[in-house]
Design a binder for these strands. Structure first.
Lengths: 236, 236
DNA sequence: TATTCTATCTATAAACT
DNA sequence: TAGTTTATAGATAGAAT
C-alpha cells in the first residue's frame, strides 16, 4: 500500500474529502470526549459541514450552550490571551519540524562517522582524502565511545574487582589496531584511555597534516591546541 | 514498557492528569485544525482547564465568535437534530465493542478448528471425545479449505493445461491421509473433492457414531441428512 | 456511494532525564 | 515539575468489496 504522509491541504476530490471528513470528525469527537473525561474539564466542539445543515457538536446542545455562555462572559481582551490561533499554531509546527530536521541531520552525521570508524577498524589502514571536518567529527565519536567504555569498565570494576584486569586491556587493543597498522609499529604502547581530549584531537590533526606517508607521525604528540573546549561537532 | 490500554476515566493523580491534559489538548487542537483544512469546513473548539483562567480555543477568538453566531442563529429544535451527544456516542461505542467481540470469537473458533484439523492430519488417527458441535465446525472448515483448493486448481488449470495432472492429486492425497490412517485402508479411492456438503457432513456423523473401533466405517456413506442448508457454523 | 480492511502513520502512556 | 524518548495503542489513507 505504502500510504503517503498526508499533505495538509484541501482535498480536491469530492468523495475522498467526504470520506475523510466522516472519519476525522468521528475521531475528533472521540478525542474531545476523552479529553473531557480523562481530565475532568469543560470542553466543546462545533463542526459545520456541507453534508448536513445542522452542525455536529460535542457534548450536547446544552453542554455547548453552557461552555459558550462561560466564554462570552469573558471580556474580549481576556479571550485573546493564551489562545491558540492558526498563525501561532503553524509557527509552532514549523519550529518543531526544523528542530526535527536538525536532530535528524545530527543522527545521520553520527551514523556516517560510525561507518567511517568501522572502515578504519576493518581496513586496518589510513584512509586518504578525508576532510579535516570528517576527521574532527570522527575523533569526537571515537572519544565518546572510549568514554562509554571507560564508564563500563568502572561499573565492572566496582562489581567485581577481579574483572578489572580482563576488561581494561580489551579497550586498548581496539584502539591499538588503528595505531599499529596505520602508523607502523608503536605496538607496545597501546592507546591511553585516560589521555585528555586535546591530545586526541592533536593526534588526528597530525595524522592529517602528515599526508599519507605517516611513518614518522607520533600519534600522541603534544603540539599547540587553540582552546580547552571540544564541542559536540554534530550540532551543525 | 508494555503500555496499557488507557481506562477511560478521570485521572486521579494530579501531575499525571496535567501531563495528559497538555498532551491531549495539543493533539486535539491539531486535529481540529487538520479537519478544517483538509475538508474546508467551519469548526471550532473551546477548552477550559483549571490550569489557566482563559479557555483555549481554535481557530481564534474571532473564528470562534463567528461559528458561535452561526450556531446560535439556529432554532433550538434544529440544534438538537443530528447531534452527537454523550449518550448516543457511548451507545455507538458499546455496539462497536460488541461487534468486535463477536468477530473475535468467530476468529478464535476458526483458529481452534484449524488446530484440530492439523491434529487430525499429523496424528493420523481419529480423535475421540470430540463433540458433535466441534466436528460440525471442523467439517465446515475443511470444506472451506477444499473450496479454496479447488478455486486454486481452476486458476492453475486455466493458466497451464499441463499442470492439471499435478495439482489435482495433491488435494486428494491430503484428504486421503485422514481417511487411510483413521479408517483402515480405502487408500485407492482418495477424497472426492466434488462430493457434496451433505455427504461430508454424514461422513463426520458416521465417524462419530461408530465410536473408536472405526474399521468398518464407510467415510462416504449416504445416510439420512435433515436439511440441505449448511450454515457457517462460526456465526454463533 | 458506503462500508470494510489493513498497512502505515500519528498520538501518547510510561519511563527516563 | 517539565521536557525527551520509546514502544504501544489508536487513527486513518487508500484499496477492496
Amino acid at each position: 500500500m505504502t500510504r503517503k504522509k498526508v499533505k495538509l491541504a484541501f482535498i480536491v476530490n469530492d468523495s475522498a474529502r467526504k470520506a475523510t471528513f466522516k472519519k476525522r470528525k468521528k475521531g475528533l469527537m472521540k478525542k474531545v470526549s476523552e479529553l473531557s473525561t480523562l481530565c475532568g474539564i469543560d470542553a466543546c466542539a462545533i463542526v459545520y459541514s456541507p453534508y448536513d445543515p445542522q452542525p455536529e457538536v460535542w457534548p450536547s446542545p446544552m453542554g455547548v450552550q453552557r461552555v459558550l455562555a462561560k466564554f462570552r462572559r469573558m471580556p474580549e481582551l481576556e479571550q485573546s490571551k493564551k489562545m491558540v490561533n492558526q498563525e501561532s499554531f503553524l509557527r509552532q509546527r514549523i519550529l518543531k519540524a526544523k528542530d526535527q530536521l536538525k536532530k535528524q541531520r545530527k543522527d545521520n552525521r553520527e551514523k556516517e562517522m560510525t561507518q567511517l570508524m568501522f572502515q578504519y577498524l576493518s581496513a586496518g589502514k589510513i584512509m586518504h582524502n578525508i576532510s579535516m571536518v570528517d576527521l574532527n567529527d570522527l575523533a569526537w565519536l571515537i572519544d565518546q565511545n572510549l568514554k562509554d567504555i571507560n564508564r563500563r569498565i568502572e561499573v565492572l570494576t566496582k562489581n567485581a574487582q577481579s574483572q578489572t584486569q580482563v576488561a581494561a586491556p580489551a579497550v586498548t587493543d581496539v584502539a591499538a589496531k588503528i595505531e599499529d597498522k596505520g602508523q607502523g609499529s608503536h605496538s607496545g604502547q597501546g592507546f591511553d584511555i585516560n589521555m585528555d581530549l586535546m591530545q586526541k584531537q592533536n593526534w588526528f590533526m597530525n595524522l592529517m597534516n602528515n599526508g599519507g606517508g605517516g611513518n614518522e607521525t607520533m600519534p600522541f604528540g603534544d603540539v599547540n591546541h587553540q582552546n580547552g573546549f571540544w564541542p559536540n561537532p554534530f550540532f551543525h
